[in-house]
């Protein structure tokens, strides 16, 4: 007789039982039970299949993302690095690691994210899809674009006046050429009764050509002139969506400004026409 205590005996028996279930023993036991009864029941044992270990849905999700430790240690598995939630945790972790004992407040967190950008699933810095996105423009390209636009404007004005000044001269001094009949078919254009119709038609054609050329330049440079230069548009774009009961307020303001641009050109042309007519009448 040995001097085994009850506890020791229980422990040895337990180890013996566990040994019988280890190393594929569990499945072979189930096989034995089912085999002797010609059963087709499952004989795969939870002990022989470690992957069967119950895993929480939440745990699975965390495994796919990134652990806190990994974040703090700077390990960045490629799959996890683009996940916004992880980015948020990263921001928090980095802010806490900066040595400040105080709790990072929401505003500093958000402003930090605004500065650094919030990576999306594509790895690019993007705003939510419902907000119109303006790609950032290189300042040098913007300057070049502005130069081209200004040059186009100058040429347009010059060409307009190259046409308009003689036309105005004809209209104001038309009677001196009537007898000479040098104008031929253009004599009707010089008729003062047709002036407004001719002038308006010319303005429409000239403005259309100008805008065609402007759009061509914008396309080539990939720059929207009004969006990048207009202070009004910049101010309007700062208004949060939903604050005013108007949808896409920035787009509407841009359209209004374009109409205003056309009208302004027309008005300035009329003003100059009046001045030139005045000068021609005087002298």
């Amino acid at each position: 007789m040995s001097n085994l205590s009850e506890a020791e005996k229980r422990k040895i028996l337990r180890e013996r039982r566990q040994k019988k279930f280890a190393n594929g023993g569990a499945s072979s036991r189930l096989n034995k039970i089912t085999g002797q009864s010609d059963s087709h029941l499952n004989t795969e044992s939870p002990l022989d299949n470690p992957t069967n270990e119950p895993v929480l849905p939440a745990e699975r999700k965390v495994e796919r993302t990134l652990s806190q430790e990994d974040i703090l240690n700077g390990k960045e598995p490629s799959e996890a690095e683009n996940i916004p939630q992880v980015e948020l945790l990263k921001q928090l972790a980095s802010m806490q690691n900066e040595g400040s004992d105080s709790t990072p407040d929401l505003f500093s967190l958000l402003s930090s994210m605004q500065k650094n950008g919030m990576p999306t699933a594509n790895g690019t810095d993007e705003l939510p899809s419902n907000i119109p996105v303006e790609p950032l423009v290189d300042p040098a390209m913007l300057n070049y674009h502005n130069y081209l636009v200004n040059r186009l404007k100058a040429w347009t004005i010059l060409l307009k006046w190259i046409v308009l000044v003689p036309f105005l001269y004809l209209v104001t001094r038309g009677e001196s050429f009537e007898s000479a009949s040098v104008l031929g078919p253009l004599s009707n254009l010089a008729d003062s009764t047709n002036f407004f119709m001719v002038f308006t038609s010319f303005e429409i054609v000239a403005t259309s050509i100008y805008y065609q050329r402007l759009q061509s330049i914008e396309r080539n440079n990939k720059v929207n002139t009004l969006d990048n230069n207009s202070k009004i548009v910049k101010m309007v774009s700062m208004i949060p969506e939903g604050l005013l009961p108007i949808k896409n307020i920035k787009g509407k303001v841009v359209t209004l400004l374009q109409y205003w641009d056309v009208l302004a050109m027309f008005i300035s042309d009329i003003c100059l026409v009046l001045i030139v007519i005045g000068i021609f009448q005087k002298f």
């Binding site: 337990r14 039982r17 279930f21 039970i33 002990l47 270990e53």
Partner: peptide
């Protein structure tokens, strides 16, 4: 009976996988 024996074996294996004593 067969089904009861089969389920008992499975139960025991599950319990062992939870590190629970069954004797």
């Amino acid at each position: 009976e067969f089904l009861s024996l089969y389920e008992t074996e499975r139960l025991i294996q599950e319990l062992i996988s939870y590190d629970m004593d069954v004797n």
